[in-house]
């Protein structure tokens, strides 16, 4: 396995829209192994999109299982992913391997459901919340050429915790 080079902004390639994966072959599984290796090599990296290594196919990997006390789906290989439902909104702090030395606040849905193919091309359904949902939304943005810089909100935005009215 190989740790791939991460594209770093202002490389304009990161703004490119990735194309759907059509063949689930040996080449794909080799790439997935390298992509996962690259994610794990990054400091604190819990997710990666293929676009971050200059491979513009709709592929992302998210694995937040190393974080204590959170709900997660283990290591998710997300190919041609599509978010089906969004629920709630929350401000949280994000950073990105493609934007070193900067973290900023971003509003993301708190809960999402999504469909994506796995490495074998089988369609899978996932429910994600909180930290994992944030990671998935961050990675899927990369597939549409969006960085968290495109979604930054002011540091003051979440001054007060939102009250929940039910």
């Amino acid at each position: 396995m190989t740790v791939l080079d991460i594209l770093k902004y202002p490389d304009e390639a990161l703004k490119q829209i990735s194309q759907p994966v059509e063949s689930f072959d040996e080449e794909l599984s080799t790439f997935l192994a390298n992509l996962e290796e690259t994610m794990r090599a990054g400091p604190g990296g819990v997710g990666i999109a293929a676009a971050q290594v200059g491979y513009f196919s709709r592929i992302a990997i998210v694995d937040v299982s190393s974080k204590p006390k959170i709900k997660h789906n283990g290591c998710m290989i997300l190919i041609n992913p599509e978010i089906k439902t969004w629920e709630g909104m929350k401000v949280g702090r994000e950073g990105c391997m493609s934007v070193p030395d900067y973290t900023g606040n971003v509003i993301r849905a708190e809960k999402i459901t999504l469909q994506a193919c796995n490495a074998q091309g089988e369609l899978c359904d996932y429910e994600c919340e909180a930290y994992e949902a944030r990671a998935v939304q961050h990675e899927l943005d990369h597939l549409d050429g969006l960085l968290f810089l495109d979604r930054l909100v002011s540091r003051r935005t979440d001054l007060f915790k939102r009250k929940k009215y039910k």
Binding site: R93, G95, F148, K161
Partner: peptide
């Protein structure tokens, strides 16, 4: 007073 951890997500 609210003390909230900031859990940074690096993706």
């Amino acid at each position: 007073v609210d003390v909230t951890p900031i859990d940074v997500m690096i993706g």
